[in-house]
């Protein structure tokens, strides 16, 4: 498995960049000719991960979000979204559906959406150092 194309970008932890990040990543993977559902799955998962970095990682304060997207020769898209925020104390708990620390307007389903829309979701975190979410999905494309 060889990386054939890679995108690296850094965005400020501002909510306006949620839309920018998912659209930019959607455009980057367009070369794999994803169908509407695959494209929407990736954009939705990215939106969840970037929102988590802003709302939880940085607690809506200023920070940077580091995004790497790589496409491998077997059409697997790997998206790494990293923040240098507060970190997660208990990862399994944070990933439980309906668990949230952000109040009644957040459903606590961000990780559930990522897990349901991507092939794999991996989370690593260190308290006080930040969190990295790695999302993977094989794009079969319109011709599959």
């Amino acid at each position: 498995m060889k990386t054939v194309n890679e995108l690296k970008m850094t965005v400020d932890s501002k909510s306006v960049n949620e839309g920018f990040s998912r659209v930019a990543i959607g455009a980057f993977i367009a070369c794999l000719d994803p169908d509407i559902e695959e494209l929407n799955d990736v954009k939705t998962a990215v939106s969840e991960a970037v929102t988590n970095a802003i709302v939880h990682g940085y607690r809506e304060k200023a920070g940077k979000i580091y995004i790497t997207v790589s496409i491998s020769d077997n059409n697997i898209v790997r998206i790494r979204i990293r923040d240098k925020g507060v970190g997660i104390e208990d990862i399994p708990k944070a990933m439980e559906p309906l668990f949230t620390t952000a109040g009644s307007e957040r459903a606590g389903l961000g990780f559930a959406v990522m897990e349901s829309f991507m092939d794999s979701v991996r989370v690593t975190s260190q308290l006080g150092r930040g969190t990295t979410v790695t999302l993977k999905k094989r794009i079969w494309g319109k011709n599959s």
Partner: peptide
């Protein structure tokens, strides 16, 4: 044109 889990929070909050 697009919706992530924020849409769920929006519906749940209005439901309550």
């Amino acid at each position: 044109t697009f919706m992530d889990s924020s849409g769920i929070g929006l519906v749940m909050g209005r439901y309550k």
